[in-house]
Design a protein around this nucleic acid. Structure first.
Length: 426
RNA sequence: GGAGAGGUGCCGGAGUGGUCGAUCGGGCUUGACUCGAAAUCAAGUGUACCCUUGCGGGUACCGUGGGUUCGAAUCCCACCCUCUCCGCCA
């Protein structure tokens, strides 16, 4: 969430940013409402603090009078303080109410896009910053989509998933299962080599954690909930991993802090279903390896590029055709200041599939998380947080199967051989 | 799940109704001593929010949330968590 202080000081820049997210003048008025509400909040806090200070002083006096045995004077003061208690109660109530109102207003404002982010309506306005220049893999015109390849080679089974759980919960089997495990292992090893510490977090988180990274209060509909225990199934490893440092103050020299984690991801995805979300294109449970960075504000955009280059290397090693897309304001996630998407070419479906999203959240998450660092002078500042998929498995698998199909079987990229133990699926 | 003990600052550990944001020890920072270091000595060392141009000042926070009281880390209630023992169990 944005800091009120920032809205007050950089209002013009924030309006420019929100315009890129297609905010109307009507919507932008909420900024003024926030500022007014904050003025009121500060006014009430001053009043309340003063009143509490007065009562505190009187109470201390009562203590002294009692010690001196001056009972009557003490009793007099007591009745005075008692009389003020109702004022305190009322002020407290109003203060709480205004504070809550301010918070819920702030929750409705998305992150301010970085100045380099283009304006735009939706996906059609995204900027392709790196296109695939080489030819796509040559496939026969009767090439199979991955869901047909899965049947042919017995790699995963959606009907069985329906039997066990419901639609969108694939059962991987045989070489299909092993391929999953190989990819996870490959990604983790590459990330560790690049300096990320491996984390294996819980797959269920509590409300505070879900709030920390911004899944709550907004997007509870996208998560699976265990109501009885007040827990949420994680939609991404970003949630538990970024929360590791919630309420922490790290020293400047510890930055950057780099984590990587493999977890299953659970998404209810209320969105539309149809032909283009067949097979592994969109599922309720999938595997993903995530990278998370806690960065110094001055270095976060450099870090973002480093993460982009790292994901690029992974895709190169997997020999998959890909392109990098800079998301426009209208297509960017609520919490992000700047996002690059990675899309791989799916040969049989003849379309691009999103396999990674790398974002800088600046202080949008760290403010809520209270994730700060202490500089050399002892001053405390918010860190920047970033994360990216490195990588999400299902669509990688889809592209891999489709692009590498041959009459003899499906060719496994060389880098995976030592993890799969086989070079072909046949 | 049952019984007991307990949750206090970076750590250890006091505090059982008043001047306690919190004794003390360790750690850390700065200064003195030293060629330098160790040892020693001295001072400092929480966070959030608010007021203030600045100096500085105020409020809240002792697991969480309520309550009692003029006043709560301290008393009462509920919940959460940790440890020990028993039971169950991958």
């Amino acid at each position: 969430m944005l800091q009120v202080k920032r809205i007050r000081e950089e209002k013009k820049a924030i309006i420019r940013g929100l315009r890129k997210r297609n905010w109307t003048s009507e919507q932008i008025k909420i900024l003024d409402e926030i500022l007014h509400t904050d003025d009121e909040r500060r006014r009430l806090q001053k009043q309340l603090d003063d009143l509490l200070a007065e009562n505190k002083r009187l109470s201390a006096q009562i203590g002294q009078l009692m010690a001196q045995g001056k009972r009557e004077e003490a009793e007099q003061l007591k009745s005075k303080v008692t009389a003020q208690k109702e004022d305190v109660r009322q002020l407290e109530e109003r203060f709480e109410e205004v504070k809550n109102r301010l918070e819920s207003l702030l929750y409705t404002v998305p992150n301010c896009p970085h100045r380099s982010v283009p304006a735009g309506r939706g996906a059609e306005d995204n900027k392709i910053v790196r296109d695939w220049k080489k030819p796509f893999p040559a496939l026969p015109h009767d090439a199979l989509a991955h869901w047909d390849l899965a049947k042919k080679y017995d790699l995963f089974d959606f009907e069985l998933g329906v039997k066990l759980t419901g639609a969108g919960f694939p059962v991987y089997r045989g070489k299909g299962a092993k391929l999953q495990r190989a990819l996870i292992q490959f990604f983790l090893e590459e990330n560790i080599k690049a300096g990320y510490e491996e984390i294996l977090p819980p797959h269920l988180v509590n409300e505070d954690t879900a709030r920390g990274t911004g899944q709550l209060p907004d997007k509870e509909g996208q998560m699976y909930v265990c109501e009885r225990d007040g827990l949420y199934l994680i939609p991404t490893a970003e949630v538990p991993v970024t929360n590791l440092l919630r309420d922490a103050i790290v020293s400047e020299s510890e930055l950057p802090i780099c984590y990587t984690a493999y977890t299953p991801c659970f998404r209810r995805e209320a969105g539309a279903w149809g032909a283009h979300v067949r097979g592994l294109n969109r599922v309720h449970q999938f595997d993903k390896v995530e990278i998370v960075r806690i960065e110094h504000p001055q270095r976060s955009y450099k870090a973002l590029l480093e993460m982009v280059r790292h994901v690029q290397r992974l895709l190169n090693k997997l020999e998959l055709p890909y392109r990098i897309v800079l998301l426009c304001g209208g297509d960017m996630g609520f919490t992000s200041a700047k996002t690059f998407d990675f899309e791989v070419w799916s040969g049989a479906q003849q379309r691009w599939l999103e396999v990674s999203s790398v974002s800088n959240f600046e202080t949008f998450q760290s403010y809520r998380l209270q994730l700060r660092y202490r500089d050399a002078e002892g001053k405390i500042h918010l860190t920047h947080t970033l994360n990216g998929s490195a990588l999400a498995l299902p669509r990688i698998v889809a592209a891999l199967l489709e692009n590498n199909q041959t009459p003899e079987g499906i060719r496994i990229p060389k880098v995976l051989h030592k993890y799969t133990g086989f070079k072909m699926i046949s």
